[in-house]
Simulated assay, not measured.
Amino acid sequence: MVSGCSRMAFAQIMIGMEEADKNVYEWFLNTDNKITKSLQISSRLYNDIVTNEDEDRRGFSTAWTCYMKQHNVSRNEAVKAFREKLAAAWKVINEGYCMRPTPVPRAILRAALNYQRMLDFAYKYNDDYTKPEIAFKHLIPKVLLHPIPI
Rank of each mutant, 00 (worst) to 15 (best):
V2S: 09
G4H: 04
C5E: 05
S6M: 03
S6A: 08
S6C: 05
R7D: 11
M8F: 15
M8N: 13
A11C: 14
I13C: 15
M14H: 04
E18L: 05
E18C: 12
E18D: 11
E18M: 12
E18N: 11
E19C: 00
D21T: 14
V24L: 07
Y25A: 05
L29K: 12
L29M: 14
I35H: 08
T36W: 07
L39M: 01
I41P: 02
S43N: 09
L45E: 03
T51G: 10
N52D: 13
N52F: 01
E53P: 08
E53I: 15
F60W: 14
F60P: 06
F60E: 14
T62C: 01
A63G: 15
W64D: 08
W64F: 15
Q70A: 15
Q70C: 15
N72Q: 13
V73R: 12
V73L: 12
R75G: 06
R75S: 14
N76M: 07
E77S: 10
A78H: 00
V79A: 07
A81G: 04
F82M: 07
F82S: 10
F82Q: 04
R83V: 10
E84D: 09
K85S: 14
A88M: 07
A88T: 09
A89K: 05
K91D: 11
V92R: 04
I93D: 02
I93Q: 13
E95H: 05
E95F: 02
Y97S: 06
C98T: 11
M99H: 11
M99A: 07
R100E: 15
P101E: 07
R106G: 03
L109T: 10
L109W: 13
A112Y: 12
L113V: 01
N114T: 06
N114P: 11
Q116I: 05
R117T: 13
R117H: 09
M118G: 15
F121T: 02
F121A: 13
A122H: 03
A122N: 07
N126T: 11
N126H: 11
D127M: 01
D127Q: 00
D128V: 04
Y129I: 02
Y129C: 06
T130R: 00
T130G: 00
T130I: 02
T130P: 07
K131F: 10
E133L: 06
I134C: 02
I134H: 02
I134D: 06
F136W: 01
F136K: 10
F136R: 01
K137D: 07
L139T: 03
V143F: 14
V143P: 08
V143N: 09
P147K: 08
P149W: 10
P149I: 13
I150D: 12
